[in-house]
Each structure stands twice: as structure tokens, then as C-alpha cells.
Amino acid sequence: MEDVDRIKKDLEEQTRLAEERLERLKYLQADFDNYRKWSEKEKTAIIALANENLIKDLLVILDDFDRALPSLQAEENREGMGMVYRKLLKILGEYGLIPIECVGKKFDPNLHEALCREECDREPGVILEDFGKGYQLRSKVIRPSKVKIAEHVSRKEGEENG
């Protein structure tokens, strides 16, 4: 009888140890899974940052194309240069680069940088001119558009009557 009690006691102890170790294993597995997810997220963030830096550097080339293409009206290379420019825009677009359209739209300080204002009859805050093209990389603004915005003309009482 004592042997049976001792064996039962040993079995209970071994069962408890097995359950403890199983629980520790589950925690380790969960920790490893969390680490794997964190590592994957970190890797994605590093790649995105590297892409962002490269694309920012390439924006200078896009600016050069924007300035050069209008001056090549009579040049025979204009069409080829235009093709290279469109191809570059397409490739950068596949990586998430989006030009910020702004002329005629309402000024948004998250997308635009106001360089000056002009008094006119248009609605206040409407963008009149784009001095420097802005870009977004997916949803992040990597360079705001540099713009001129409309300002309401304030007429004084004596001006209306001449």
C-alpha cells in the first residue's frame, strides 16, 4: 500500500512538473511569436525608411525634368526626355510616390507650404500657384507643395466710390 501511495505521489509530482513546463513552453512560444512579429515590423520600417530616403534624393531629378522639359520645345530629344521622365514617375509611383495636386484647391497646412499671398477676388485660402511640387509617399508627406494662396481683398469705404 505504501508503494502505491508513493507512486501516486510521484505521479502527481511529475504531472505538476509536466504542466509547469508546458506552461513555460507556451509562454516562450508566445514570446518568440511576439519577437518574430516585432522583428518583421522593424524590418518593414527599415525598408520603408530606406525607400523614403532614396525617393527624396530622386525628387531632385524630377525637379530637373520639370524645369528642363518646357525649355526643350524645338529639341528633337524632347520626346525621349519626356518618356524617361514618365517612366521615372511610373516607377516611383509603384513605390507609393504621389504628386500633391494643389492649384485651385483649398490650402491645407499638412500638404502645402504657403510662400506668399495675393489679394484677389477668389475665395480666401485657394491656391493660385504652385512654386514647388510636393509629394507624398503613400499617406506621408515627404515634401509639401510650395504655393501662393488667395487672400480676400478688403475694400475700404472710400475706394468703392472712386
Results as ranks from 00 to 15, higher is better:
M1R: 12
M1N: 12
E2S: 13
I7G: 05
I7T: 12
K9H: 15
K9G: 09
K9C: 07
D10Q: 15
D10C: 06
Q14P: 01
R16W: 04
L17R: 11
L17Y: 08
E19Q: 11
R21Q: 11
L22G: 14
E23H: 13
R24A: 07
K26T: 10
L28R: 10
L28T: 10
F32H: 13
F32P: 05
R36I: 04
T44R: 10
A45N: 11
A48I: 02
A48K: 08
L49E: 15
L49V: 08
N51T: 05
L54V: 15
I55K: 07
D57F: 10
L58Q: 04
I61S: 11
D64Q: 13
F65Q: 06
F65P: 01
R67A: 08
A68W: 05
A68M: 08
L69C: 06
L69G: 02
S71E: 14
L72M: 14
L72V: 10
Q73K: 12
E75D: 15
E76F: 03
N77C: 08
E79H: 03
M81H: 11
K87R: 15
L88P: 04
L89G: 01
L89P: 02
L89I: 07
K90I: 04
I91P: 00
L92Q: 01
L92T: 02
Y95L: 02
G96W: 01
P99F: 02
E101T: 07
E101S: 09
E101A: 09
C102A: 09
N110Y: 12
N110D: 15
L111S: 05
L111G: 00
L111V: 07
L111W: 07
L115H: 03
E119T: 09
C120S: 15
D121T: 06
P124L: 01
G125R: 04
I127M: 02
E129C: 02
D130P: 05
G132W: 06
G132A: 09
G132N: 08
K133V: 07
G134Q: 00
R138E: 15
R138L: 11
S139N: 15
V141T: 13
V141A: 02
P144N: 12
K148P: 01
K148V: 04
I149C: 01
V153S: 12
V153T: 14
V153I: 15
S154K: 12
S154Y: 10
R155T: 05
E157I: 03
E157N: 07
G158L: 14
G158E: 14
E159M: 02
E160H: 11
N161C: 08
